[in-house]
Nucleic acid binder design. Structure first.
Length: 348
DNA sequence: CGTTTTTGACCCGCGC
DNA sequence: GCGCGGGTCAAAAACG
């Protein structure tokens, strides 16, 4: 792994061949619901383009981590409206880059636990999420611990778990990237704690946990069954620390200590750094030649509705039913564009 | 030797 | 209640 993860964020653009998908587990049904944000897409796209052409933020640092990209994503999520309203921002002026948007992001939240009701799902889920997020920051630590304890208890005692109290899951968001390697280097250190075969997919899903003490962020990585070159990464939780590798602000948006979840603002992802560079590469590549970046922002963390919609929208572009995206990534995948891939040194 | 990965077993939630 | 699928644990193995 060293050295080479070729990750490519793919984006989907109307004009370009890119597609990205956002998947949100969190609001499966919600996807369908949100409003549409068409302009956004283009806006984002623009941003991306700009960056790329101007070399924007990415270059400056020379390293945009994957997560950085994500940041952007998140950013989108929070600022989608803005974008939407002002889709046209001089890209060159935008410090923030388009980011991870490029990859397909799937945002999700606890759909699993909250079988949300179709209608309320978006809202309720969001609100819940919001609440969680809101508390999240504060609770991060406590919550984390609590969860851990819970887990332990759960395991150790195996029964303590109360039936009613469903364990709450952290907000999650997923994104798709084209990569040869399964694991994206996002600047954080992850420890693999499990792998499971996924139904209807020849590819297994790997489970990773942030190795930083006290940080309960988890992520799962799996390849798309439809397009093996696409890796779907789902992050869950908020980092309670900054990027271990190189704490730095990412482009523009900064994350709060808790990492991506700032409920309010964009969900920011911790700033990965070291890997970033590599990613950046990939990123750049894709940008230039074919411009593939798509983004989606979503975040359960925040005002997800937007993101969702956004996502949805994007997705819909490529596939008829956005809803299906969540459960089925086909739509997402199909949009993905091949680009260059990079291998990065194993971040772990 | 410490850390990470592998992997089978176990637990839990959900749908039938 | 049962089976299925997802998620996690933890011991053993691998790795650096």
């Amino acid at each position: 792994m060293a050295g080479r993860d070729h990750h490519q964020l793919v984006a989907n653009n109307e004009n370009h061949m890119v597609n990205s998908a956002f998947i949100s587990e969190e609001m499966p049904s919600s996807l369908a619901l949100s409003s549409t944000i068409t302009a956004t897409a283009s806006g984002i796209f623009d941003m991306i383009s700009c960056d790329q052409s101007s070399g924007g933020g990415y270059d400056q640092k020379g390293s945009l981590g994957f997560m950085d990209l994500l940041d952007i994503h998140s950013d989108f999520g929070s600022s989608l409206f803005e974008w939407h309203q002002n889709p046209i921002v001089p890209q060159h002026q935008r410090p923030v880059l388009p980011s991870p948007s490029s990859s397909n992001v799937l945002e999700s939240s606890e759909v699993l636990n909250n079988p949300a009701t179709p209608n309320s799902s978006s809202i309720s889920s969001s609100s819940n999420e919001a609440e969680n997020s809101a508390q999240g920051n504060k609770l991060d630590g406590d919550r984390e611990e609590e969860e851990k304890n819970q887990d332990k208890t759960k395991k150790q005692s195996l029964k303590p778990k109360k039936k009613n109290q469903k364990k709450q899951r952290e907000p999650r968001f997923a994104f798709m990237t084209k990569s040869e390697v399964d694991q994206l280097d996002d600047g954080y250190r992850w420890r693999k704690y499990g792998q499971k075969a996924v139904k209807n997919s020849p590819y297994p899903r790997s489970y990773y946990r942030c190795t930083t003490a006290g940080c309960g962020v988890k992520k799962t990585v799996e390849r798309s069954r439809d397009d093996p070159s696409v890796v779907v990464t789902t992050y869950e939780g908020q980092h309670t620390h900054s990027c271990p590798i190189t704490p730095r602000g990412s482009i523009g948006i900064l994350s709060n200590p808790s990492g991506f979840g700032a409920a309010t603002s964009s969900f920011v992802v911790p700033q990965p750094h070291h890997q970033c560079q590599q990613h950046q590469h990939a990123f750049m590549y894709s940008l230039s030649p074919s411009l593939n970046i798509s983004t989606s922002a979503g975040s359960n963390f925040n005002p997800a509705p937007l993101s969702s919609s956004f996502l949805q929208e994007r997705v819909s572009t490529s596939s008829p039913s956005s809803a299906s995206l969540l459960s089925d990534d086909q739509g997402l995948l199909q949009d993905i564009v091949p680009s260059q891939m990079r291998k990065e040194p194993k971040q772990e």
